[in-house]
Design a protein around this nucleic acid. Structure first.
Length: 566
RNA sequence: AGGGGAGUCGCCAAGUGGUAAGGCACCGGAUUUUGAUUCCGGUAUACGUAGGUUCGAUCCCUUCCUCCCCUGCCA
């Protein structure tokens, strides 16, 4: 009865949490007849980020585990800020994350008629009034945390007066800001949200869905509670900052239920802690600023923790779901390390990513005893634990490239790659020995001259082996490509807590671009597919800049590196 | 006259009167032509603090401390 616990992708079953406990209890008492309906209610005024992803996973995940449904509902009550562009992006990202909203797409704006009628109902019951104070005066009269507010001089308007005025507001007879419709609750409430909250304001602005039909638009608390009830949401899961709004949510619904306008039982608002990620910022305002000031290249910049950015960077939907599952849902403020996101990525990609070899910082190797102008075909599995996938092939010739960091002229203790006079295996190829090196005018190693042992071809039964194996790309069939190496955008854990503006803590090395050598199989690399460049990390073709004639790869994450030079 | 929340291992997070799950990280060791993966094994005398109730308290009561949220005609 504790919800069908279906692992998201072979991972452990979702842990019990306080939300699921509430649902279990409701199911046990048949409060909602065993139904579970949740909702993800974004305002279409920005792009989704990793924090939203967690909320999506919580809401859609619970619906899935309990055999219920999760509504995608656009909270589009503020036409001045919202746009279809955002709506489309949000829908795309929800789907990309692996959740379907097909038959469960809703809009708060679809309830505008109903919301309006309910507002008149509140007026008729003497529970709402038109306030004509200025915004400034309203603020002043609301009181403070310690001091109760004082009643508006318009609080005692008659029902007839209120109704007439509200209809005039609706009919466009008044300017923006001239009046506002307020619930009549309690100006002395210790909870400021209950001090006669405004529920309708005048906005002579066209709405992207309702056009110019309305010039009065309902506010969040009023709209959200009623929308939930109309959709028969059973559990309305939101973040902690709405805790103080719950009494208002309950008040609105209770009044409508007692009048027979809405069915019982009402949905229950449940709040959980939002996600905080280290080394980044997640507020819409800051994300926008990073884009507007050109610090990043757009909303889908791979360094951005937006879902568009994460996707472009090479994060898989499954890895984000795994991450959301691991961080769980609770009421304690959580501060999660960015590295945890990368670990979830590695865990997912290790089992799925096709392998390939790529040299990101090339140094040339010449095998002097390799016959000139000859090559030999080598092959390698697409995945080390899945031999059923077609193998990849590439050539080995006299000249090739290896990673600069795989050679040390003066090796650190414990270094077992290539050193002067030492041997190393060319993965899937032969064992080579470094005979001598040649440096350029600046003292950098220009070429490594080596010899190979013909008896050591990869796969030779009973052949000898050496400890180190390094990746390489032959000059004959290697591909050139641009590779973008990303790192965290900020250099301190909490950019907001440091001294000064968060933008003073940018990591200057958050993007490095290198020209790499890739093995030939990578010409066929697909957008949205991840590749493990062996020993280097997980990469994906850049979805906007990569073309077959000019390959561009993004690094999503490095591989775990257990070697500590000593 | 203020109100509402939260404090359990480095990071998440269960448990809620019967003597501290799990994940990640970390540390050993085995396998490995990725210093990856995988596999074994280890890791809180301890639940913000001080008291109290109880045979027994992370869980109940009280004190104190720390942190977060709320004074938009934003959501």
């Amino acid at each position: 009865m504790s919800g069908a616990k279906q692992p998201a992708n072979g991972a452990a079953a979702p842990a019990s949490n306080f939300i699921r406990q509430i649902i279990d209890a409701d199911n046990a008492s048949a409060k909602h007849g065993g139904k579970v309906i949740t909702r993800f209610p974004p305002e279409p005024n920005g792009y989704l980020h990793i924090g939203h992803a967690k909320s999506i996973c919580v809401n859609f995940g619970i619906a899935r585990d309990y055999g219920g449904v999760c509504h995608l509902r656009f909270d589009d009550t503020n036409p001045a800020k919202e746009d279809v562009e955002y709506e489309e992006s949000i829908k795309e990202m929800v789907e990309w994350l692996g959740f379907s909203y097909r038959d469960h797409l809703f809009y708060a704006s679809n309830y505008f008629d109903q919301l309006y009628l309910f507002a008149e109902h509140f007026i008729e019951r003497g529970l709402a009034y038109v306030d004509s104070q200025s915004a400034e005066l309203m603020r002043a009269n609301r009181g403070t945390f310690e001091k109760p507010g004082i009643d508006s001089p318009f609080r005692s308007r008659t029902v007839v007066e209120n109704l007439a005025l509200f209809r005039e507001m609706r009919d466009g007879k008044h300017a923006d800001g001239a009046h506002v419709l307020r619930l009549k609750i309690d100006m002395a409430s210790p909870n400021i949200n209950l001090r006669d909250p405004a529920i309708y304001r005048i906005r002579h602005v066209a709405h992207h869905r309702t056009g110019s039909k309305w010039c009065v638009y309902p506010l969040y608390d009023y709209t959200h509670s009623i929308s939930d009830a109309i959709e028969r949401i059973t559990h309305s899961i939101c973040t902690l900052e709405f805790e103080a709004h719950r009494p208002l949510y309950d008040w609105v619904l209770a009044k409508l239920v007692e009048a027979g306008k809405l069915p019982a039982p009402s949905p229950q608002q449940i709040e959980f802690a939002r996600l905080n990620l280290s080394y980044t910022v997640l507020s819409k305002r800051k994300l926008l600023e990073l884009v507007d000031t050109g610090i990043v290249n757009g909303w889908d910049d791979p360094r951005m923790m937006t879902l568009a950015g994460l996707r472009r960077r090479g994060f898989s939907p499954a890895s984000i779901r795994l991450f959301a599952e691991r961080t769980g849902a609770s009421k304690a403020h959580q501060w999660v390390d960015m590295a945890d996101l990368e670990r979830a990525l590695r865990e997912d990609l290790d089992t799925t990513a096709t392998r390939a070899m790529a040299v990101l910082d090339p140094v040339k190797v010449v095998i002097e005893n390799w016959p000139a102008d000859t090559t030999e075909l080598c092959s390698a599995p697409a995945h080390p634990h899945d031999e059923s996938r077609p193998r990849r092939e590439f050539k080995l010739g006299r000249e090739l490239y290896i990673e600069r960091e795989d050679f040390m002229e003066v090796p650190s203790k414990g270094f077992f790659r290539l050193v002067p006079g030492g041997e190393v295996r060319l993965r899937y190829g032969y064992i080579i020995k470094c005979e001598r090196i040649e440096k350029d005018a600046d003292g950098n190693i220009a070429t490594i001259f080596a010899s190979y042992d013909p008896a050591t071809k990869s796969g030779t039964p009973g052949g000898r082996n050496v400890k180190g194996a390094i990746h390489w790309v032959a000059a004959v069939d290697g591909l050139r490509a641009e590779v973008r190496l990303y790192d965290r955008l900020f250099s301190i854990e909490n950019p907001d807590a440091g001294e000064g503006d968060y933008k003073t803590h940018l990591n200057p090395n958050s993007l490095r671009v290198v020209q790499a050598w890739l093995e030939p199989s990578l010409v066929a690399a697909q957008i949205d597919q991840s590749y493990q460049f062996e020993r280097m990390g997980y990469f994906t073709p850049d979805r906007v800049d990569s073309t077959p004639s000019k390959l561009v790869f993004n690094r999503a994450a490095t591989l775990k590196d257990g070697w500590k030079p000593g």
